[in-house]
Structure formats: structure tokens, C-alpha cells
Design a protein around this nucleic acid. Structure first.
Lengths: 211, 211
DNA sequence: TTGTTAGGTGTACAAATGTTCACATAGATT
DNA sequence: AATCTATGTGAACATTTGTACACCTAACAA
């Protein structure tokens, strides 16, 4: 790559990292200022505009970063897990491991889901839906839950994703020196996912919904 | 009540309502300023300090307001719903109705859950846990899910609460002129809760967890 | 009735913020 | 080698923000 572009990407990344670091410190993404981001990135405030128009712009690009992380996670999960006894536990643990190594990114995700602009919220939700759809495809490919209609399977996978995503916030708030709490949270989630799947296996389409 | 106190409560409420209105407009709670709140409440900025020390202080008091709304919801649910075929659907619909008539408050709840300070997050989580515990007690009182251990039942009710709470954000983003989308979302949630309960009924304690 | 006080006002000021503009300069292009 | 250009700089600005202070006055207590 040309030197110019390389340097550009470098400060661009520094700006995004600065914003993320702010979130990592427990501050709200929406409360950071352009100047503060620039300062932390080691550039002058006006340099910010060479890369982004807005903090919203930064947020949308952070979603892209999140997207990459999630896709990597999905790939990893597919490689490691076969149809085994511990498939669920393995997947949850993998999610948690990824979560803990990208704390700031996931915290940002949680905030953006409820906080930011409408388009930002949509962007994050899209990523989660993508994840759910991939899970859906995998379940089908494994020949599992064949009793469910396509529609119903979609709802089930969304429920699974929501359940696993549900621990994100709680997990992020547990201090690192409390591994036992973390462990319990993980076990809870594993149980919850199992319940969902047990329920799915036993699901029967309601006798002809009133048409 | 004395005239003084009455007036005090009045502007105090005006300040809280102003903050809530800001959230209702889609803005982040953490991005509102003391001055803006005061202006919208129709008082001078410094008057703010007669009632609150901080915006954080306001937030904690909004959680109290939320708490009241949730308890009212719970009471309402208990009165209306007996053990019937449609108990689940009724409860979900009741939640949605309450949600839609307190949009701002629930939006605030979602934001505070992921956004605010650690103590604020804890406060909101407490409210949700309270809700889950009440549900737990009701399930026990009805003699349902007697196959579950106390521990397990707790996890199940939390899962139910999470599932229902999960639609909150999505529902808030659906424009009012799209009732069909809302309806589908509601049906999805009802199905999801049913799946959880079916799973719970069929749950069997794993054969002696490795002790 | 008189004095006290709590809630609200207005002014004031330092700090932070978004954004503009003219400028510099390393690196690309020719 | 000469020129151009995209990235970063620094000064400047009008706004907005948090908060302190002195003050006013309606409601209260005596």
C-alpha cells in the first residue's frame, strides 16, 4: 500500500480506537466529543473531519468492525463444534471468550442497540439478524429441528441469539476478579439455551391456526 | 399538602418530564445537558440544583418512576389473568400495551441498562429482577412447573422476562402507522415464550451433575 | 405581625465544543 | 525535477455547558 494511504488508515484507526476506549472506560458513546476523540488519537481536532463527518459516522464504521468480529466468531464456532453432547456449552463459551476479548466493541454494540440514531440501531440489529440467520442455516444443514416450519425456526434462532446476547451486559459488569460469578452466568445461559431447544423439539404447530 | 411542597414537586416533576421528553424524541439520555432540561422545564438553569445534584440523580429518580409503572403492570396482570389457554398471550399483550403508553420511560430503561453509570445499570437490573422474582412466585403459587428446582425456575423466569423485554427496543422503533409489523412482533414473542415454557415442562435435571 | 427560609432569578465566568479558514508539507503524479 | 494534492496543523469564532454567587420573594413558623 502507498505510504499516504497507510498513514491515513493509521490515524483513522486511532480515531476509532479512541472512541472505543472511551466506551471501554464505561462512558457513554453518545457523550464523547469530537475534540476528545481527536485528542486521544493524538491529532488536532480538525483532522477528525478528514476521516469522518460525524461521531455518527464513526459509530457506523465501528459497526463494520463489529461485523467482522462476529463473522470471525461464527467461522470459529463452525470449525470447532461438531454435533456433540457439548455443542451448546462450547458455543456459549466461545461467545463469552470472544466477548471478553472485545469488551469495548460489545459494550458499544449494546449501547448502540438502544442508544444511537435510528439508522445506527438498525445497523446493529442487522448484524444480529445476520448472526441468527447463519445459525438457522447451520441448524438446517445439520438436519436438526426438522419439525419446525421455516418461519418458526427463524423465531427460535432469534430467541437463542437474544438469550446469549442477554448475558453480554451482565458479563461486562462483573469485575475480572470474580470468575465464579462469571461461571455461574455462563451456566445459566447454557441451561437457558437448552430449555429453548428442548421446547423447540417438542413444539407442535397449533392445530390449524384460525384462518 | 403545603403550597411550598406542592410547587416544589411540580417543578421537580417538570424537570424529570423534560429529561424524559428528550429521550422520547430519540435523543440519548446521556447527551442531555442540565441547562437544556431546565429550559424545557421552564426554569432557570440554577434552579435545577434545588432538586437534583446531577443528571445521574435525575436518572435514579426516573428509575423509581419506572419501578412504579412496572409494579402497576404486575398488579394489573395478576388481576386480569387467570390460568387460561391465553394466559401467555394476554400477559404479552398487556406488557406491550403498557410499553406503548410509557414509551419514553421504557426507552430510558433500555438506554440505562447499557448506557449509564454502573449504579444506574444496577438499579435498572434490580427492577427487572424484581419482576422476574414476582413471576417466579406466581408460577409457584399456581402450582406450575413443579418439576423445576428453585434455582432452575429462577433461570426460567429470567429467560421469560428477557424474552419479553427483548421486543421492547424493536417495538419502539416501529412507526405507529405499521400495526401489522407490531402484531407480528407480538406473535413472535408469544411463540417464543411458549417454547420456553414447553422446554421447561420437559426439562429433566441432568443425571447428577459432576459433583 | 415579624422574622426566617426555601425555591426561583439573573449575572457571571471559565471551560469545552463544533466548525471555519488559511496554511504547511510529505508523498504522489507528471 | 516540478507540480499537485491530500492529510495534518494552528488560530479563531460563536455556542453551549456546568456551576458559583448574590439576590428576590412567597410561604411558612413564631
Amino acid at each position: 500500500m502507498s505510504i499516504r494511504l497507510e498513514k491515513k488508515q493509521q490515524t483513522r484507526q486511532a480515531l476509532m480506537d479512541a472512541a472505543l476506549a472511551w466506551v471501554d472506560e464505561g462512558q457513554d458513546f453518545s457523550s464523547i466529543s469530537i475534540r476528545e476523540v481527536a485528542k486521544r488519537a493524538g491529532v488536532v481536532p480538525t483532522a477528525f473531519y478528514r476521516h469522518f463527518t460525524d461521531m455518527e459516522d464513526v459509530a457506523l464504521n465501528l459497526v463494520d468492525e463489529l461485523s467482522i468480529a462476529l463473522r470471525k466468531l461464527m467461522r470459529e464456532a463452525r470449525q470447532k463444534s461438531r454435533i456433540t453432547e457439548n455443542m451448546i456449552a462450547d458455543s456459549v463459551n466461545l461467545y463469552v471468550a470472544n466477548l471478553l476479548s472485545h469488551k469495548a466493541l460489545f459494550r458499544f454494540m449494546s449501547q448502540a442497540l438502544s442508544g444511537g440514531s435510528a439508522t445506527l440501531r438498525r445497523a446493529v440489529r442487522n448484524e444480529m439478524q445476520f448472526f441468527a440467520r447463519e445459525l438457522e442455516a447451520d441448524v438446517r444443514a445439520m438436519g436438526l429441528l426438522s419439525n419446525l416450519s421455516a418461519h418458526m425456526l427463524q423465531w427460535v434462532t432469534q430467541l437463542v441469539i437474544n438469550t446469549v446476547a442477554g448475558i453480554t451486559l451482565e458479563l461486562l459488569d462483573i469485575p475480572d476478579n470474580q470468575p465464579s460469578q462469571k461461571q455461574e452466568l455462563i451456566e445459566k445461559t447454557i441451561c437457558q439455551v437448552k430449555i429453548v431447544l428442548i421446547g423447540s423439539v417438542h413444539w407442535k404447530e397449533p392445530t390449524q391456526p384460525p384462518q
